[in-house]
Every structure is written in C-alpha cells, then in structure tokens.
Computed example of a mutant assay.
Amino acid sequence: MDASMKVLQRVPLFRGINENDFPHLLNCINAKKKSYARNEFIFLSGDIPTAIGIVLDGRVQIIKEDVFGNRVILNDLGAGAVFGESFVCGGSFSLTVSVQATEDSSILLCPFKQIMHICPNACEFHNTLVQNMVVMVSQHNIKLLEQLEVTTKHSLREKILAYLAQLAQEQDSATVNSPLGRVDLADYLGVDRSSLTRELKRMQDEHILQFDKNIYTLLNTGI
C-alpha cells in the first residue's frame, strides 16, 4: 500500500488521520486493493454494495443506462476520489447506477460496516472516519445538485456554458481542462455527439468560446 500512500493522504475519508496510522487503519477496516482492466465494471446496476471504493490510480465513471441502452455519465473520477458512499450509507439498496473503469485502475474497497462501527480495540481514528463520512455524503449531494443545474438547462448551449462555468470556478480560470472527452461530454449532457460538436463550432464562430480537444476558453467572462 506504500505506493498509494500519497493518494490516501488526500482522500476525504481519511482527512485528519495521521499517515502513520494508515497501515493499522486499513487493516482494522479490512480494506482490500483490487485491480480492474479498462472497461471492466466495478459495480453493476442492481448490485447491493457493501463497500465504498477509493480510486488509487486510473479513472472510473459513474454511469446510468435506461431501458433503451442510452447512457448518461453522472461522474468522472480520478485518483483520490471516493464512490459508492451514498448507497452504502442508505442501507441495503440496489444500485441504480454502474461504476466502470475507463482505464486500467486500482481500487481500494472499504467495507462500510467496519468504517462506521467502533471496533473492540477502540481505535482513535474511528470517530474521525464517521465524521468524515457524513461530510462526504453531504458534499456528494451538493455535486449532484451542481450536475442537475447543468443537465436541466433548456438548450444545449445553456448546458455547455453551465458545465464550463462550473469548471472555470473549480479551476479558477477562464481556460479549463475538461476531464471528459467529446463522446463522454455528450453523454454527460444527455445529447448526441454530433449535436454537441455542431454547437461548439457555432459558439466558437460567435466568439463565445474557443476550444482545442479538451481545452476550453470562455471569452469575455471577466475571470
């Protein structure tokens, strides 16, 4: 686990816990590291998860598919990100989404019961874990609201601008690097790729933005 120590240090679940306690902590909560190949599913819709996942390296996406096979990307996560916490905190509920590795990835699976229940050894870090879990679930709900703010816009142009405005705020720059490629961004916005490409070109012609692959610059934003 030494190679992943720097990643674990920035994981919200472990905030405030001394890095020297990590080996004991991971053993206490029975955390297991597992590798997934590109396009392999970590969780499938319909599963009843018992553990939360932490991305140690690689990249994963939270996706939802309807009965017609249409796919929407709900989140795109890199190293240090946590997923599955809202479902395991809610009890024995079936997943309504799937989690898929978009490149070769290493995931740390942490059983929820071991995180939330004080162990017989009364380890000092358990209270911190519980507090951090509550904060994480709250932040997750805020991220969902931010996504709703984007996807509920009426026009495609409004969706694009809302998405890029959020990135600009996060990255504190009018020029942003989107973690989503064109195909994934279309899925995230709930539109087809050709429509997205056409609208981006129109917005560039109208000097609203400039783009080159995944790099976008919002013009006249004041940022």
Rank of each mutant, 00 (worst) to 15 (best):
Y216F: 15
N132D: 13
G58P: 04
G46I: 09
G91S: 12
P120G: 12
T175Y: 08
D76I: 01
H207V: 09
F41L: 15
V150W: 07
K201N: 03
V72F: 04
V55L: 01
E103W: 02
K64M: 03
V191D: 04
G190K: 04
N70Q: 09
E149K: 10
C110H: 00
N70W: 02
S194P: 01
E103N: 01
A51I: 00
K6E: 11
L148T: 08
H24M: 10
N30H: 03
I142E: 14
L189M: 01
G90F: 10
M116V: 13
A51K: 04
R15G: 05
T175Q: 15
I63H: 00
G80Q: 05
T221G: 12
L219Y: 12
I63Y: 00
I62W: 00
G53H: 02
C123F: 02
S94M: 13
S4R: 09
V135Q: 02
V150S: 04
V11C: 04
S194L: 10
N18K: 11
L108M: 12
L77R: 01
E170K: 09
A31V: 08
H207P: 10
L167P: 04
S173F: 05
V7S: 07
A174V: 08
H140M: 13
H154E: 15
Y163I: 11
L74A: 06
A186E: 02
Q139M: 08
E19C: 00
I48Y: 13
Q114W: 04
K213N: 06
E65D: 05
K34D: 05
L44R: 07
N75G: 07
I63M: 00
G222C: 11
R10W: 04
M5K: 13
A122M: 15
I215Y: 07
D104C: 09
L180H: 03
E199K: 11
R15S: 11
I115G: 05
I48A: 02
L129Q: 00
K64D: 09
A165E: 14
G53C: 11
L77N: 01
F112E: 00
R193V: 12
G84Y: 06
F211W: 06
A162K: 12
A3W: 03
I29Q: 02
